[in-house]
Simulated scan of single mutants.
Amino acid sequence: MRASRLLSLLLLLQTRGRLTASEIAEELEVSVRTVYRDVEALSAAGVPVYADRGPLGGYRLLDGYRTRLNGLTAAEASSLFLAGLPGPAAELGLADLAAAAELKLLAALPPEPRSQAARMRERFHFDVPGWYRSADDAPFLMDIAEAVWEDRVVRFRYRRWGPAEVERMVHPYGLILKGGSWYLAAACAGSVRTYRVGRIMSAEVLDKRFERPEGFDLVEFWRQFAADFASRMYTAQAVIRLVPDRRELLAYTLGADVTEKALADAVTEADGWLRLTIPIESVRHATWQLLRLGGSVEVLEPPELRALMADTVSQLTRMYGVTGPGAASGS
């Protein structure tokens, strides 16, 4: 434990230059007295550590001194792809490894690339979840990650859409982070399926191991799954009329990609409204989406969607007692 701390202290001084005892103590999460003892130990081992006195003082290494003790452990190297995502790294239990790997990398870099790495960290930040939503609560994520890493079979209870719960025995192949939610790609009953980790109700990592299929490409699997999911999601089409200045609101409601494709083939009618065809998941889902546009949209087809829109508006009218444009409470 102390050897690891001494190495971290040495790498800190090499990476950041002059540091006070208090700054070192805060970084290493130890007491200032421990820092004093560790500096003495480094000095006794022949490391040229110097103390500058005064208000701007602190500990520093002799100019030009560089240690070559910066090799990455296998576990630290495995965490590097998450070095820019501290949140996901912490969720997988790799936060300390990622931090240690980053420190060693910075220590190994010459001054100019090191300063560029520091500037990169100051100027770019990844915030994974989308707006107006938080990341999934996935209490069994670390268990699943362990099983993925060690090729071990997992048994879990899973909550599907709706109230139904099922039990599954799977071979976990990989984890994917999408929009703040973790997804598990796993073999079950002869095919590779996806499971939202936040919907796993309980999990047991078994001692039994499985043989990971040679050549399985997690990135390609997810790309194909995402494309198939999009094609399955949109089961029908609707023809609508839209007020021209509501393009952005339509994009916010349906998604930018869907709206952009629909607008590319839109026709401008005599009254200036746009006539376009949009993909929909279902009549009920489309009703919920299009009602958000209020009077800026008119559904033309299919008839079931137009009828459901009209029925919903009638219910709202009865609920709020609105009888006309000038109606108001108390008038």
Rank of each mutant, 00 (worst) to 15 (best):
G180Y: 06
E122A: 15
F126I: 08
G130A: 03
R121V: 11
A145P: 09
R157M: 04
D127M: 02
S115E: 15
R157S: 13
M120P: 00
V128E: 15
W149I: 11
I144M: 15
R119H: 04
A108Q: 07
H171S: 12
E122C: 06
P110I: 05
S115G: 03
A117M: 10
W161R: 11
R119G: 00
R114Y: 08
G162V: 13
L175N: 07
E150G: 02
P129M: 01
Q116I: 08
R159K: 12
Y173A: 01
H171A: 05
P172G: 07
Y183E: 02
Q116H: 12
R123N: 06
L141F: 10
Y173I: 05
E112K: 07
G179F: 00
P129A: 02
M169I: 10
S181N: 14
Y173V: 06
I144K: 07
L141T: 05
P113K: 04
R123K: 11
Y158S: 11
K178S: 14
L109W: 11
F156Q: 03
A135M: 04
D137W: 12
H125D: 03
A147Y: 05
G180T: 09
I144E: 11
Y183F: 05
R160P: 00
P129C: 02
W182F: 07
Y158K: 09
R119D: 05
A107M: 08
K178L: 12
P110E: 14
P129L: 01
S181V: 04
Y132P: 01
A108W: 08
A138V: 13
P139F: 06
E150W: 03
M120N: 10
K178T: 08
A135C: 01
A108D: 11
P172I: 04
G174Y: 08
E165I: 14
M169H: 12
Y158G: 05
A145H: 15
H125G: 05
A186E: 03
R159N: 03
R114G: 06
M120A: 14
I144Y: 12
E150D: 12
R133F: 00
R157A: 14
R114C: 04
W182T: 00
E112S: 03
R159M: 10
V153S: 01
I176D: 06
